[in-house]
Design a protein around this nucleic acid. Sequence first.
DNA 1: CAAACGTGATACCTTTTGGTTTCACGTTAA
DNA 2: TTAACGTGAAACCAAAAGGTATCACGTTTG
Lengths: 106, 106
Amino acid sequence: MTDLTQNCFRALADPTRRDIIQLLAGTEMTIAEVSSHFDMTRAAVKKHLSVLSDGGLIEVQARGREKVNRLNRHGMAPVLSWLEYFDSFWDDRLAALKTAIEKDKS
Amino acid sequence: MTDLTQNCFRALADPTRRDIIQLLAGTEMTIAEVSSHFDMTRAAVKKHLSVLSDGGLIEVQARGREKVNRLNRHGMAPVLSWLEYFDSFWDDRLAALKTAIEKDKS
DNA sequence: CAAACGTGATACCTTTTGGTTTCACGTTAA
DNA sequence: TTAACGTGAAACCAAAAGGTATCACGTTTG
């Protein structure tokens, strides 16, 4: 497992991947379903999904011969955590945010 | 001016650039000063600073023959804004955060 | 079982990115 | 006015990123 924070930032850096995240925020989808929303091959979308998975932003679950991609609501934590570290301006508010995340992890 | 949100995410995707941001969170610096903290040429650091500038994360000000690089505390706004849009889970807390940013822009 | 389906993985290509070296240009100091 | 200084910018290079096409493999369905 390489640097999760780096993988998370990297995953968010591509507009297609951010679009995928927004898609999955609505419903979980198979690769084929996700692919149908983009003008590129399934293989390309699969690569994006792998990067998102490396960044901890989605979770993949096998269901028969399909793989369902689900958004990980805690995946943004590394980004928020870094923002908090870097800029004391946000500290109070982001601290509250992080606390909320931890609590929700039940 | 291309997509600021994209440029902002892209700027944050590189670990060296995140390090630079953390450096500049302490003090403003000339290019030469920033470069002295990294094991790479001044030209390479200059490129990183350009990317950070494109992302709206730093501001550059001429001072004599030097250029001073200063952190833009509001530069993260596009990222926070996107996080807010994508995930209703954060809405309440991030809305408060955004309000705080706008107020501070005075 | 055989065929169709959904996926994973590889090889390959093009563009972008992160880095270097080098040189030109304005600014300051002697 | 030179000479040194700090920077900007270009040419160039290797590696990574984003994409394609293709094939192999397990899982359903007739």
